[in-house]
Amino acid sequence: MNQVVFIELINPFKDKVFRLAKRLLTSTEEAEDATQEVMVKLWNKKDNLDAYNNIEAVAMTMTKNYCLDQLKSKRADNLKIVHNNFTDRQPQLDKKIEDADSLEWVEKIIGQLPEQLQILIQLRDVEQYEFEEIAKIVNMNETAIRVALSRARKKIRESMVNTHSYGIK
């Protein structure tokens, strides 16, 4: 397998890997590093890639594990990544500030969820994977995923409603 074929192979899910990494690691730079790491790992395994029937799921699983490892080692160092420490490259301020503000709220609320729920929200609500695929990536059964996802969504709703009606009720 040469580079061109490999790039074509990873192109469809490269951004999904990046977004999952960003969801868990928060900073764009860390997420880029993680994406590169995962892709290079895949590239090194390129001769055995045919053995996997779903490379995307493998890549997502690798990403998930890599990011959780990263978080673990960061925590061991007593270092927590705070979003404000990193510059955001996306120009957001040209949008309506109020909109951006409430979207940021959602991001914060999701960021407060346990990592497992963050992963599920990312895979289902953002990337729109089928439950069957998510089951492969996170190695859980579909019912458990549905239950956990429902819990995550309700938590988001609860926090949103609280924020939305803050000071009114």
């Binding site: 951004d15 977004r19 880029e32 994406t35 909109d99 979207l103 959602v106 999701i110 709703r157």
Partner: peptide
């Protein structure tokens, strides 16, 4: 905002080259 956020986040792209 919840659904707006999901759609917006999906637009994020990996900008760096993979070495």
């Amino acid at each position: 905002p919840i659904f707006g956020y999901f759609s917006q986040v999906k637009e994020q792209k990996m900008t760096q080259e993979i070495p």
